[in-house]
Nucleic acid binder design. Structure first.
Lengths: 205, 205
DNA sequence: CCTTGACTAGACTAAACAGTCAACTATCTA
DNA sequence: TAGATAGTTGACTGTTTAGTCTAGTCAAGG
C-alpha cells in the first residue's frame, strides 16, 4: 500500500560509485543525493547516516554483482587451478576496462573502504569483514580442490587463501595508486607461483 | 636570524599519526593543530593546505624512519634471501607492537593514504608513488642478488619485486581491516614461496 | 473515490570547517 | 641594543556540512 520508489536503490548505486571513484571520506551525503537525484529528506527517510547507506550499498554490491561473478568463476565444475587463472584474468580485465572508461584505475572498493574506515566506522568495517570472509571461502575451497587433485604443493588452505587474497588486493591497490592497470598483468604468473602450482608450463615468473 | 620553532615538525608528526590512526579524509586541520599544540595561524604560516602538510610529512617519514630501517635490513652485506626474511619479520613485529600499544593494527600509512587519495590529491599521490618506487628498488636489488646467488628461481626482478610488494601490502591491509596482526604471521612462508626460494628447509607453506 | 500510508520537497538550524588577517612576540645579527 | 626577521596568536569571515521538520504528493486497497 502507498507510494513505491526506487530512490533507495539509486542512493545505493550512487554511493557505491562515488565512494569507489573518490573515497568514503571525500563523499558527502549531498554529493550522493545529487548523483542519485534524490532530495535530502528522502535520504533520511531511507537511511540514518552515510555509514548506514554504505553498509546497505556494500551488501547490495555483494548480492547483485560479486556473488554471481564469483559463483561463475569459482564453480566447482571448473578445474581448480583454472578457477584462479580465470579469476586473475577477470581482475585484470575489469580494472583495465575501468581505466579505459574513466581514465582511472579504481582498484577494489572493498579493500579501499575497509582500509580507510577500519578504525573509524564499526558498522561499515563489520560489513567489509563479512564480505571479505565470504570471498576467502571461494579461494579456500579452490585451494583444497587443487591439493586433492595434486595440482599444487600441499599447504594450509586457509593460510594459502589468505595469502592469495593479499597478493590480489596488494597488486590491485598498487594499480590504483600508480593508476596503471598493467601492474596486474603479471598477477597471473605470480599467483601461480604463490599457489605452488606443480605444472611444467608455468606462466612467466 | 629571527625566532626559531619546531612547530612545523610537530605538525608533520601530528599529521602522520592522525592520518595513520584514522584516515586522510577523516582528519581535519583543526585536529592536527590540536594534537600538535599549534594554532591555526601558525599552520598556515608553514603550510598552505592539508595536502601540502601531508606531502612534507610523508617525505619526513621516508627520510627519518623508513630509509634508515630499509638500509639496515636490505644491506647488501646480508644474504639476499635473509634480507626478505628479516623484513617479513620486521613487518609482523612492528604491526603486532602497534596492536599491543594502541589496540589497533594500523597497517601501512603509505598504502592506506595512497589508495584513499589517488584519484583526489595529485600532490600527495605523487609523493606516495615516489616513496613506493624507492621501496621497490630495495626488493628488486635483493631479488637480483638472490638470482645471482642461485637462491631463487630465475625471474624478472622488477615484476617479482612488484609482486612481493603487493603481497606485503595486501597482507598488511588485511591485518588492518581485520584488526588482527596474526594474518601477517604466515607472510614469511608465503613470501618465500612467491620468491621461488629453492631451499629445502622452506618455512611453512 | 477516498482513505491510508509510503514517499518527497525543500527550507531551516546549528555545527564544523577552511582559510584570513593584523597585531603581537621572541630571537638572531650587526 | 636596535632593527630586522621568523614565528605566534586568536578572533573573524564565509562556506559546507549533517541532520530536522513540516507540509505536502502520489499510488494502492477498499
Amino acid at each position: 500500500m502507498g507510494r513505491t520508489s526506487d530512490a533507495n536503490l539509486r542512493l545505493m548505486d550512487a554511493a557505491l560509485e562515488l565512494i569507489w571513484e573518490e573515497s568514503y571520506g571525500a563523499v558527502t551525503i549531498d554529493d550522493i543525493c545529487t548523483r542519485a537525484d534524490v532530495r535530502k529528506g528522502s535520504f533520511y527517510y531511507f537511511y540514518k547516516s552515510k555509514a548506514d547507506l554504505a553498509v546497505a550499498a556494500l551488501d547490495r554490491m555483494w548480492n547483485e554483482s560479486w556473488k554471481p561473478t564469483l559463483d561463475g568463476i569459482f564453480s566447482p565444475a571448473a578445474d581448480p587451478v583454472a578457477r584462479f587463472s580465470a579469476y586473475f584474468a577477470w581482475v585484470y580485465k575489469s580494472q583495465a576496462a575501468l581505466k579505459q572508461k574513466l581514465g582511472k584505475v579504481l582498484g577494489c572498493p572493498l579493500c579501499s573502504v575497509g582500509s580507510e574506515v577500519s578504525t573509524q566506522e564499526p558498522g561499515v568495517s563489520a560489513k567489509v569483514r563479512e564480505i571479505f570472509s565470504r570471498k576467502l571461502r571461494y579461494y579456500e575451497s579452490a585451494v583444497r580442490d587443487a591439493i586433492a587433485a595434486k595440482q599444487i604443493e600441499a599447504c594450509d588452505p586457509a593460510k594459502k587463501a589468505s595469502a592469495i587474497a593479499g597478493l590480489i588486493e596488494g597488486v590491485v591497490a598498487q594499480a590504483r595508486i600508480m593508476n596503471d592497470p598493467e601492474v596486474i598483468q603479471s598477477l597471473a604468473g605470480q599467483g601461480m607461483t604463490l599457489l605452488g602450482v606443480k605444472s611444467l608450463a608455468q606462466a612467466s615468473a
